[in-house]
């Protein structure tokens, strides 16, 4: 097996069954995993912030809205059938629970909302979500069978 780490603001798309796409330690960031079971093409996006602030069409994967568009294009380029894809999402936590600090920084919730908005606009439906709360998550997407898992501190991977 071949671990391919998906860093902050990155997209990795692969059709190699040996690959496992991993976004480590997501806090307020979102890991959005796409998988086409017919062609076994998979992609993982590690988005940091909800929306590109300039409203520009810069295809940066740092932002949820532009990142989603980019990963769909990458999937298509690699031969995925976008009609068949499953979309799963994890992350979007609010890491600061202190009442004095948390209110202003709710990027996690805004990331989740931005993802719902862009998928609605593009008429895609999310297959599964493990989002929110105040805990960090590591997300793995196994290309061989399309399994996507979430792991939190002190526990085993669980499939979503």
């Amino acid at each position: 097996m071949n671990i391919r780490s998906v860093g902050l603001g990155e997209i990795v798309v692969s059709r190699n069954p040996e690959d496992i796409l991993v976004a480590f330690g997501l806090g307020s960031c979102l890991g959005i995993g796409l998988y086409d079971p017919t062609t076994h093409v998979a992609g993982l996006l590690h988005a940091v912030l909800p929306e590109n602030p300039n409203g520009s069409t810069d295809p940066s994967a740092k932002f949820v809205n532009t990142g989603v568009i980019s990963i769909l294009e990458e999937m298509k380029k690699n031969g995925a059938n976008l009609q068949k894809i499953t979309i799963r999402m994890a992350g979007g936590a609010n890491m600061l629970t202190s009442p004095a600090l948390s209110k202003t920084f709710d990027i996690g919730t805004r990331n989740i909302a931005a993802a719902h908005k862009i998928f609605d606009q593009l008429h895609y439906r999310l297959t599964a979500e493990d989002v929110g709360g105040n805990i960090g998550r590591t997300v793995r997407l196994y290309i061989v069978d399309g399994k996507m898992t979430v792991r939190v501190i002190g526990s085993q991977e669980k499939e979503i």
Partner: peptide, 21 residues
């Protein structure tokens, strides 16, 4: 202060999110 016990990546997200990229 707020004390957070979690993965390094998740702790780092706090800083990244609040600087707005």
């Amino acid at each position: 202060p707020a004390v957070i016990v979690d993965m390094v990546g998740a702790i780092l997200d706090i800083v990244i999110a609040t600087t707005g990229g």
